[in-house]
């Protein structure tokens, strides 16, 4: 059974840079984007290596501000 693949979508301007999401990702791909600041003045959370995402939903589960939406991606056979 191919591993589930996911896509993480951040509503960046709702993020308060609290970093909770970065502590629960099993594949450790959720990071704070230190190169940018969002409208609230925080470094927003982001994912660079999206291909590693397994759509487990941990980051969205622990986010206190409903910043994160997660979709699964169909695996090209």
């Amino acid at each position: 059974m191919p591993k589930r693949k996911g896509k993480v979508i951040f509503t960046e301007d709702r993020c308060k840079g609290c970093e909770l999401c970065t502590t629960v990702c099993p594949v450790d791909i959720v990071k704070m984007n230190k190169s940018r600041i969002n409208v609230k003045g925080y470094h927003p959370a982001t994912v660079d290596e999206m291909e590693k995402c397994i759509a487990c939903g941990n980051c969205a589960t622990i986010c206190p501000d409903v910043v994160i939406k997660i979709e699964t991606i169909e695996e090209e056979k």
Partner: peptide
């Protein structure tokens, strides 16, 4: 697999980060 619930209004929370 994970999206914003209808149970919440649009308004952003005022709570402190984290």
């Amino acid at each position: 697999v994970f999206d914003r619930t209808q149970g919440l209004a649009e308004k952003q929370f005022h709570y402190c980060p984290g």
